[in-house]
Design a protein around this nucleic acid. Structure first.
Lengths: 340, 340
DNA sequence: TGCTGTCCATAGAACGTTTTAGTAAACTTT
DNA sequence: AAAGTTTACTAAAACGTTCTATGGACAGCA
């Protein structure tokens, strides 16, 4: 089964077309130096032999763009549940496909990412990488900047060091969310945040505190890790407080879904007794009853935008850091004026 | 930023250690032919220079196993929502990591998969591939068998042609599910199936019909495409029938979640008026209220098993087709005796 | 002393491309 | 018609590994 037939090489094609292999290269890449007739003949020969250029050889010799790397460091169990990555990846792929580029993926511990990226880049396997889940003072930044890896960072420029950054304006979005809940009449607002070592958790937390202060509200943040269990726990903690919040916002959608169950436990009706506001609006939010209001952003488009930026970086074209479309409030049935 | 510093090569390492590059290769791969002292010296030199072997060069010359390919052809929108793939991929990765292998991923139309796989294999980019979402008379099978691609098929051997297949025993699982619902007292059982061109949809449909017939029940299947919308529609169709079913089983979990909403629409209480049984038991099933009973299987482990098989195939070791652990009933709160 | 075998190490070919430098012929220009 | 320019094409040198010979050194044995 495996590799029984020898694969055709450029020399086979050249022989069949009666030219040198240089001519084949020229014809293949549509470069001047071969007559139209010869080109025709070469392409026909390549087709008949089913020849595809060996990318390892091409990489070794030339400078082709063919692969982009992505390392995801989250617990396996969570990955399946969280729609974010798959949507992000599908956005990345939409741009890669257009450029006949492939995605090299690795799911592993955060500790290993630097080594993996080094092997990939220094081993010539990728032309660039997308860095996600930036931490505060992320060790990847200096390590990967030093080896000259072309990369784009998903996250605020303040986290990205010398790399180009593409980010969602979480600050503005958090601000909008808090103002919305305040406008509905909520005075005590809870927040269930993501892991505190993640850069955007820190940024969102700060933005939340600022908005709460600006509006003279009562705010409280509980930390969680994006998993439904941790989200439920955090939500319970908030609801157990003497003066429980009348609205809670979450750092992803899974935790908000889990919170619907917690509200049920506590005998609280959503949205009358408790408003819930999710983040990362996937279709999941529309499947629940009540449907979850969310801060919505187009993750697919985000992935595509990041990848477009990466192509510029890989080509050596200057591409300044820039924010993507900011998350927008998508009110559904889980937020309302507080009762009474 | 990009590629400013020349990367170290094996020759640099050899020079620094005062040996030939052959010696470096030997030392790197822990092969006999260099003394312990020299090996030490070589590895130290490699470390100091931060050298990583160039994989393109290694591929071109040697026979290293380094990359496995996976093409997913499903609409982007659905991919995010469906936990299956991400869990499957994380299982695949768990085995790949152990073998320092990476995953080359492409999300694209079904029509393009053959071309992508050909480019990957004949271009020397992958050592083998995992084929998923097998169709009846899938054109990929003959096309990829012909070029000698080492591959493992996720699906019944009847769909896999000459390839090694690893599959979940859907027939037995469907049978168990139907018997379970029958034992609870259900006589009219509905089923919402996946896309009819998918191989396992056909197999499950046949198994369902057989089980229904064996038990002398009344069964009806509606076709859907795994999306929540299509699942809801199919579910409504079933419920609109004169003699509506008292239990409905689904081909994935998303559609079952969506069905909870439909039951609500119809004013039916789950599980008293209507029992729902999901498939592909992700954590999602535990987040809903009521929690969804499901035919559960460990997708992560499944991905790992498929990948283990692929490694055998890539190494030329005979690996017979075999079923993986079959889905098991996980009763929760969405199934019960029918009322009355 | 010669012979055989083991161990350490190296030179050099091979892998399949792309690129560089170059040549021969055909076509301009003066 | 000589000199220059363009066009069509090729030979050979990279690229950075791994693999196959091969060779020397040293030990054990007759």
């Amino acid at each position: 089964m495996a590799g029984t037939k020898r694969k055709a090489t450029i020399r086979d094609v050249a022989a069949r077309a009666g030219v040198s292999n240089s001519a084949v290269t020229l014809a293949l890449h549509d470069r001047p130096g071969v007559s139209a007739a010869t080109r025709e003949r070469i392409l026909a020969a390549a087709n008949e032999l089913g020849w595809r250029p060996n990318l390892a050889a091409a990489t070794l010799s030339g400078h082709s763009l063919h692969t982009v790397g992505l390392v995801i460091a989250r617990p396996a169990r969570l990955l399946g549940l969280e729609p974010f990555y798959m949507e992000f990846i599908s956005g990345v792929e939409s741009v890669l496909s257009r450029n006949s580029c492939s995605l090299l993926l690795r799911i592993t511990d955060a500790a290993e990412e630097i080594e993996v990226q080094k092997q990939w880049w220094q081993g010539g396997r990728v032309n660039g990488s997308i860095l996600v889940d930036l931490k505060v003072d992320d060790p990847r930044i200096p390590a990967l900047a030093e080896i000259g890896l072309p990369a784009v960072v998903v996250g605020m420029p303040s986290l990205a060091g010398p790399f180009t950054a593409v980010w969602t304006d979480d600050e503005a979005a958090i601000d909008e969310a808090v103002r919305y809940l305040a406008a509905l009449g909520h005075r005590r607002i809870g927040r269930v945040g993501g892991p505190p070592d993640l850069g955007h958790s820190v940024i969102r937390a700060a933005a939340f505190d600022r908005a709460i202060k600006d509006l003279g509200l009562d705010g409280r943040t509980e930390q969680a890790d994006f998993s439904p269990d941790s989200g439920s726990r955090a939500c319970r903690n908030l609801l157990l407080a003497a003066d429980r919040p009348t609205a809670i916002m979450f750092d992803n959608d899974i935790m908000a879904v889990a919170a619907l169950g917690v509200a049920d436990e506590f005998g609280l009706s959503v949205p009358d007794d408790l408003s819930l506001l999710a983040w990362d609006d996937s279709q999941l939010c529309q499947l629940t009853r009540p449907a979850l209001s969310a801060m919505s952003h187009d993750i697919h488009a985000f992935g595509a935008e990041v990848t477009t930026a990466l192509f510029d970086v890989m080509r050596g074209v200057d591409h300044p850091s820039h924010p993507t479309q900011r998350p927008r409030l998508m009110p559904r049935s889980s937020t309302a004026r507080p009762r009474g």
